[in-house]
Design a protein around this nucleic acid. Structure first.
Length: 576
DNA sequence: GCCGTTTTCGGCCCGACTGTTTTCAGTCG
């Protein structure tokens, strides 16, 4: 759905890179970058908008000119001014911009003075110590480039949210013990619950910055210190994760938290509002002239520009500011709202705990219900259930529920959606369980039309309850299937079935933008752990984060309902 | 190249750190 947007955004980013290297008007460069970001965030397919003749200039950052260029891309796959600029700038130069310490000025310098046009050429020049001879560059820069080129294969570019949170929590807890520290918190994309995190930003307030900076740079697991000033330091952990620490005055804490939580686009929009009110926002506070007027808390910063506090997950400049202005911010779903979980596995297939262990872990979490949804026979490597074994499990669950142990198990199955859209078990046995979770586990590469029809057909099955991990992506490993998610969600609405946010940290599927689309369509959502062990019930926090990024409220999520109400919803999904 | 309670021209977010400089440009977030 939004593939086309991303492709156009990539072309605009490339144009911005080229213009930057050519030393063009920086504001023109920024216009392309803003437009690219806007396209990625807009949540509507611009290709469709173009074909329907809709007005693209209503998208923020898109004016007459760029609207025309988008039209050109939809028609031809590219736009003519990009093509002519590409001829004037060797393609390799754009790649050089990705190297730390190299920006447009230095790339142009390297090109102009040393004739460098490729990464390989740059590496040769560095080894021959030619780069340090250029005025404005030096030996340190040369070494930094070589070091980066040597290590860039080894280090993953972005970290999964769950991994980054682990590292961040450890550092926050260590820094909290340093004498004189009054507050420590992780900000950045981690706080916004982005599915992956490029680096971690940590803020601290302290009576004196020295000791906390010292503790940070000497901390456990620090591979190297990239920079270290009196108020800011950057380190790289052995895992390759980069972490920034900023130490501030308590009076600035809220302003700094806003600033370093981002997103960048959200902050820019806030500063625009501040400018209109003749205020200035920076990481130290909100200022009228030189006078500090707010900044101790986040709420004070937002209040200074006439807004309520905005939850971090919404801070993407994707409508949250307008919603805040009108008092229409969503009351986002919270982890504590969940009363149960509708996808979990046991040792019957590929889970690591028994049905009773899973039930007790869910009860300890305070859950009222848990659906047991092991795999179906098609997934042979998990020893998927055939009708006989599924019926045996149903009996086992009935016996468990008869004991009234403080939690109710729902019977279920995660049934494979076959290549042609049929389900992997016969209708009669599917009719015997409470929850039929349909999932694609094979033929991920079908062309869009067939993949979409396959899922639609499966959802039309009379006993279909929940569509599991609809895109099938595995973060960093497998791209999403080519599915028309808009069609799938519209059908789910008509059909009355539920669509899942799978909370596994490498799935987080539905994607955030798709959650928002689902909400707008009024599709019912389940946030499921997809736990394969008792520990993995904790995944739910990531699913809730994803749902919050998609603006979902308690009322949108079926497993916030008490059991009796949930049962009604489940029964209503059955077409016979 | 975008945008508008500063409205069709003239602005455009802003501060920290590094490396190279000898007072600052470039990069980064």
């Amino acid at each position: 759905m939004l593939l086309q947007n991303t492709e156009i955004a990539n072309l605009f980013d490339e144009m911005a890179d080229i213009l930057e290297i050519k030393g063009q008007n920086p504001f023109r460069v920024r216009a392309y970058r803003n437009a690219a970001r806007s396209l990625r965030d807009v949540g509507r397919d611009v290709e469709t908008m173009v074909k329907k003749g809709e007005d693209l200039t209503r998208i923020p950052g898109i004016g007459e000119d760029l609207a025309g260029k988008i039209g050109e891309v939809v028609k031809t796959g590219t736009f003519s001014s990009l093509k002519s600029f590409r001829k004037r700038v060797p393609r390799g130069l754009v790649e050089l911009l990705r190297i730390p310490a190299l920006g447009p000025k230095r790339v142009e310098l390297l090109h102009h003075r040393l004739g460098i046009t490729t990464v390989a050429g740059l590496a040769r020049a560095c080894r021959a110590k030619k780069v340090r001879e250029i005025r404005g560059l030096g030996a340190k820069t040369e070494e930094k480039i070589l070091e980066h080129l040597a290590s860039r294969e080894k280090v993953p570019k972005r970290f999964k949210l769950s991994d980054a949170i682990g590292f961040a929590d450890a550092i926050v807890s260590e820094l909290g013990k340093v004498p004189g520290v009054s507050a420590v918190a992780a900000a950045g994309s981690l706080r916004r619950c982005r599915e992956t995190v490029g680096d971690v930003d940590i803020l601290a307030t302290a009576s004196s910055a020295g000791p906390v900076m010292e503790a940070f740079r000497r901390g456990e697991g620090v591979r190297r210190v990239l920079s270290g000033g009196p108020t800011r330091s950057t380190i790289v952990l052995r895992s390759g994760l980069q972490v920034d620490l900023r130490v501030l005055d308590p009076e600035s804490y809220g302003a700094a938290l806003v600033y370093f939580t981002g997103s960048k686009a959200h902050n820019i929009a806030l500063r625009h509002r501040a400018m209109q009110r003749r205020l200035k926002i920076n990481e130290y506070g909100v200022f009228r002239g030189k006078r500090l007027v707010a900044g101790k808390t986040e709420a004070s910063v937002y209040a200074s520009v006439g807004l309520p506090w905005i939850p971090p997950e919404l801070r993407e400049n994707a409508g949250e500011i307008e919603a805040g202005e009108k008092g229409k911010l969503p009351r986002l779903v919270e982890l504590a709202d969940l009363r149960g979980d509708l996808q979990a596995h046991t040792r019957a297939t590929d889970g690591r705990n028994t049905l009773v262990e899973m039930a007790e872990a869910a009860r300890r979490r305070g859950f009222e219900y848990l659906a047991i949804t092991d795999h179906s026979r098609r997934l042979a490597m998990t020893r998927g259930l055939d009708p006989r074994r599924l019926r045996a499990q149903i009996r086992e669950i009935e016996r468990f529920n008869a004991k009234r142990s403080g939690i109710t198990l729902l019977t279920g199955i995660e049934v494979d959606i076959l290549e042609d859209g049929r389900l992997d078990l016969p209708d009669d046995v599917l009719g015997e369980v409470d929850v039929v979770v349909g999932a694609v586990h094979s033929h991920f590469g079908l062309p869009r039309r067939r993949q979409t029809e396959r899922i639609l057909r499966a959802m039309d099955h009379p006993f279909f309850t929940i569509l599991a991990h609809p895109s099938g992506r595995l973060i960093g490993e497998r791209d999403p299937c080519d599915v028309d998610i808009g069609r799938v969600l519209r059908r789910a609405k008509e059909r009355g079935c539920v669509v899942e946010v799978d909370a596994q940290p490498d799935r987080l599927d539905l994607l955030d933008s798709q959650c928002r689309m689902a909400k707008e369509l009024g599709v019912r959502i389940a946030i499921d752990s997809d736990a394969h062990s008792v520990l993995e019930l904790q995944n739910l926090r990531f699913g809730v984060g994803q749902a919050r990024r998609g603006w979902l409220e308690k009322g949108d999520v079926v497993n916030t309902r008490p059991l009796a109400e949930l049962r009604k919803i489940l029964r209503a999904t059955r077409l016979r």
